[in-house]
Design a protein around this nucleic acid. Structure first.
Lengths: 213, 213
DNA sequence: TCATGTGAACCGGTTCACAGCC
DNA sequence: GGCTGTGAACCGGTTCACATGA
């Protein structure tokens, strides 16, 4: 079964909120409740759960634990996967701290930078190597994903190194369209675009409200 | 005219690449060239340009300078707008450095944090205030956007403060669905979801290639 | 010949609406 | 009554395909 992109996003969102729901001690949820948690319509939620083959009961809703598990079988790797991070500027360090705290199942096993004062040190629990060592370090264990948190000028070069080292996915924080061979997935997190989006919609909503008045 | 969300993203992307194109001294571009720069089909590009009412010539393509200008009239504010940033951890400081360098037309005019050792200092050229001062500082000038780079637990509270202070858009880096009144636009940058997306598609592409072989 | 401009067809995701069931 | 499961209608964005023009 093939899952559309937007649905992967929603499933990921569902799971995060379901875990909180569980943590609050509630083990059942209705589609409209889950919908309002993540900002989706009840119909959308039901459709998604139907698509992944998870069924609930009209009387009691969906079993939260079971659903978290089901989403896990779809989104998580059967085997343990790991990541490497390239670029230990402020962004890189923010990612390192955030991801080691919240995503233990996708550990960052090595970091890379070009600044001599960082190389060889252990930063936030993660060993930092020279970027030139990407090949040799990554090949020692199966690394699924490379995170690119370097300036735009260096991004393509880093991507090439990572791909050559065998990485299968790139999470790219630089504002560059990376050139990669088929079989490697690139996910862009483009802050400039997000920024221009908020600015645009903040203003246009504004205008709409004013003209209503 | 109402512009769909995805198209705002593309327009933003077009403009970035067009500026580089200009910087390389080229002042004309064909739809297939622009398309390959941003990862869109020529038909998509032509459709977008048609939608915004920009026309080219079959012989010479589109005028790059004029197109950059046209996109600007759609995306940019007629008046100068500004932003504030809440949270000066690693992420906040990464944003501060990146955005002051690349987005001079949307300056960050103030930063906020709760750490006493940061309050009152000037960090990366930006004055840092106590979060409790959001109201008073933001009301001094028209601030369009608030950037939320605080831990999840604090995000809603910060959002409330920003909204009460009159901000019209929020760029939210915390993994929380913010509750805001209508008229305020929220743009989420959800790193966890991006991460699960790469992981998922990196693996499934992998599998597809293997089964092809 | 090659690129633009565009009506029309297409497509896939979303929403509707209702039958079935607790 | 209220919720789930789901076929069918809907909708809006994307792509096609071709007329037009340099």
């Amino acid at each position: 079964m093939s899952i559309p992109v937007r649905m992967v996003e929603r499933l990921s969102g569902y799971r995060r909120h379901l875990r909180r729901w569980l943590a609050e001690g509630r083990d059942r949820i209705y589609s409209h409740q889950l919908g309002s948690l993540v900002g989706a319509t009840p119909a959308q939620v039901r459709r998604d759960l139907m698509t992944i083959g998870f069924t609930g009961s009209p009387a009691r809703g969906y079993d939260v634990g079971g659903l978290v598990g089901k989403i896990g079988t779809l989104l998580d790797a059967p085997e343990r996967n790991s990541m490497v991070l390239v670029g230990l500027g402020y962004l890189g360090r923010a990612l390192l701290k955030y991801l080691t705290g919240t995503h233990p199942e996708l550990p960052i096993v090595a970091a890379f930078d070009i600044a001599p004062q960082k190389i060889g040190r252990i930063i936030d629990g993660c060993r930092c190597y020279a970027s030139s060592e990407i090949q040799s370090v990554v090949r020692q264990e199966p690394v699924l994903i490379g995170i690119i948190a370097v300036p735009a000028e260096a991004a393509q070069e880093v991507a090439d190194l990572l791909v050559r080292a065998g990485v299968r996915g790139l999470l790219n924080f630089s504002p560059t369209r990376l050139q990669v061979p088929p079989g490697v997935h690139v996910e862009d997190v483009d802050i400039s675009i997000s920024l221009e989006k908020v600015a645009f919609f903040a203003r246009s909503k504004n205008r709409r409200l004013e003209t209503q008045a």
